[in-house]
């Protein structure tokens, strides 16, 4: 079982991590880097709680080997905060009650942020489509969709 040292680019910072081939990005983020904002609900790609951005695209950290992201750049929920200021989505989710228990929230926000990076003013169907891989058990999604719309509107100002 090979171990190797990786230079992992997470939230703009490079971390040197000693790891084994079979460890997932999710395990390394949470266990080695203490970035516990990335959640997990199923470990097998069925819930979206562990969504992070890899080179700007949402992926499931539970199904990505850490050794396969060594050349890429990872963004977690912690990385959306810039200079102590929450991302528009983080503020909008808070303001509009889009987080209830808050467990799906990090992954949901990261999926939404990838959408807004691609489509500045998405319509409701586009928002729904972008969030179909993130299960939420509390909200019924409506307040989440409203929050994405609000963040998009603010992003236009």
């Amino acid at each position: 079982m090979a171990e190797r040292v990786l230079a992992l680019r997470v939230n703009g910072e490079t971390h040197r991590v000693l790891t084994s081939d079979h460890r997932t990005l999710l395990e390394v983020l949470r266990e080695d880097l203490a970035l516990t904002g990335t959640k997990h609900g199923c470990d097998v790609g069925e819930c979206g709680a562990c969504t992070v951005l890899l080179d700007g695209r949402p992926v499931l950290a539970c199904l990505v080997l850490v050794s396969q992201v060594a050349t890429g750049s990872v963004t977690t929920i912690e990385g959306l905060v810039e200079g102590g200021k929450p991302h528009e989505l983080q503020s909008a989710f808070a303001e509009l009650g889009a987080a209830q228990c808050g467990y799906c929230t990090p992954g949901m926000i990261l999926s939404a942020s990838a959408l807004l990076d691609e489509v500045a003013q998405p319509d409701t169907d586009e928002i729904k489509a972008a969030l179909t891989g993130n299960l939420c058990r509390c909200t019924g999604y409506n307040k989440i969709i409203e929050a994405v719309e609000l963040a998009a509107d603010r992003g236009q100002l």
Binding site: A2, T24, L26, E27
Partner: peptide
């Protein structure tokens, strides 16, 4: 996280 991958070696040709 309770479901983990079994150990293996990854080769990347």
């Amino acid at each position: 996280m309770t479901m983990r991958l079994p150990p293996f070696d990854l080769v990347t040709p």
